[in-house]
Simulated scan of single mutants.
Amino acid sequence: MSEHDQPGTGTAALSIGALSRRTGLPVKTIRYYSDLGLLPVAGRTSAGYRRYDEAAAARLALIRTLRELGLGLAPIRRVLDRQAALADVAAAHADALEQQIRILRLHRSVLRALAVREPDLTEVERMNDIARASAAERHRISEEFLDHVFAGLRVDPQFEQLMRRARPDLPDDPTPEQLDAWIELADLLADNDFRARVRQMAEQHSADEQMVAGRRDSRSSAEVAERVAALAGAALDAGVDPASAAAAPVVAELVGVFAAHDERTDTPEYRAWIRASIGGGTDARAERYWQLLAVINGWPAVPTRVPAWEWFAAALAVHTG
C-alpha cells in the first residue's frame, strides 16, 4: 500500500492521498508544503506514512486559496504563523496587483496600436513612451499641438480657449478603452497632415468670424450642427441622391438655418460661402479628435456625423443657384 492509501485512526485520520482528493492539490505539492513546515503533520503510521487532521485540511485549503490569489509562500508563512495579519498581507498584495494590472494594460494598449501597422524599432519605442507618459507629458503633447495650430493666427480668443481647455485628462486608473484612445490621439496629434488640416480649419474659423461679425455663439452653432445632422442625415438614410431634385428642398431648409444663424440672406454667394466654411464637418479625423477626447475624459460619446455633412456639402455643390 502507498503512503496515501494507508488507513489511519483517531484525529489524524487523513492520509496524504485523501487530503489530495479533498483539496484537488497534487500529492507532490502537499508533501512539499509539509516539508517546508507550512502544513504540519498530525502523526505518522507505524510505517512512517504521514497523517493529517481536520485542522491541517483547513490550513491547506487556506494555503491553496492564497496561492490562487497570487501570494508567495513567504507571506503565506507569516500569515499562518501569526507573524502578519491576513488583512495587511492581502492589502499589500492587492496594491502590488494594481500596479501589475496597470502595466499590463499599458502593454496591451501598445500592442493593439502596433498590431495595426508594421512598426520599426523607433516606432515601438515611441508608442511605448506615449502609453507611459505622465500627466505633465500628456499636457505638453497637447499644448505643443495647439501652439502649432494657433501660432500667428488671429482667432476668436474664446474659440482658442475652448480648444485649450478640451485637452486629454487621462485618469490615474484608466480603462483599456481610455488607454487605447490616448495612444490613438497622441499619434493623431503628431501627424503633420492632421496638424496642417486643423490649422487650416482654425484659419477658416477666423475668416468666418470676421464675415458674420461676431454674431455666432457656441450654443447656436451647436444647434445648427444638430440640424445638419438631423436633416442631411435623414436624407442620407433615405437614399436621397445629393444631385437629385429631391435634395433641393433639404438644402434650402438647411441654408435657411445657416442664414438665420448668421443674419444673412440665401443667395448663391452665401451658399458658396457655406460650402467653403463647412470643411471641418466633413473631416473624419477632426471628428475622431473629439471622439477620442470624449473617451479619455469620460465625456458623453460624440456621434459620427461626417457622412451627413458630406451629403450636405455634395448637395450644396449641386444646388447653389
Score class of each variant (00 low, 15 high):
S109D: 00
L111Y: 01
L111R: 13
R112A: 09
R112E: 01
A113L: 05
A115H: 14
V116M: 11
L121V: 03
T122Y: 04
E123S: 10
R126Y: 01
M127Q: 01
N128D: 04
D129M: 04
A131N: 01
R132N: 06
A133H: 02
A133N: 10
S134D: 04
A136W: 00
E137V: 06
R140E: 12
R140A: 13
I141E: 14
E144W: 04
E144R: 07
E144Q: 11
D147Y: 01
D147W: 03
V149N: 03
F150M: 08
L153G: 00
L153D: 06
L153R: 03
R154C: 08
R154K: 05
R154N: 12
R154T: 12
D156H: 12
D156R: 14
F159E: 06
F159N: 07
E160N: 13
R164Y: 06
R164N: 00
R164Q: 02
R165A: 08
A166F: 02
A166K: 11
R167D: 13
R167N: 07
P168Q: 07
D169A: 12
D169C: 12
P171N: 04
D173Y: 08
T175N: 05
E177H: 00
Q178D: 10
Q178W: 01
L179A: 07
A181H: 03
I183K: 00
I183R: 07
A186M: 02
A186F: 09
D187K: 08
D187A: 15
A190W: 02
D191Q: 04
D191W: 04
D191G: 05
R195Q: 12
A196S: 14
V198A: 10
V198Y: 13
V198L: 14
R199C: 06
M201W: 11
M201R: 14
M201F: 12
A202N: 03
A202E: 13
Q204L: 11
H205T: 14
S206R: 14
S206M: 06
A207P: 05
E209R: 13
Q210V: 06
V212L: 14
A213Q: 09
R215N: 07
R215S: 06
R215Q: 05
R216L: 14
D217S: 15
S218Q: 15
R219G: 10
R219E: 15
S221V: 15
A222H: 14
A222I: 04
A225D: 15
A225N: 09
E226L: 09
E226T: 08
V228A: 11
V228W: 01
V228K: 03
A230V: 12
A230P: 07
A230W: 12
L231Y: 09
L231M: 10
A232I: 09
A234T: 13
A234I: 08
A235P: 01
L236R: 11
L236S: 07
A238I: 10
A238Y: 07
A238V: 06
G239F: 02
P242D: 01
A243M: 03
A245P: 04
A245W: 00
A246L: 00
A248P: 08
P249C: 10
P249T: 05
V251M: 08
L254C: 06
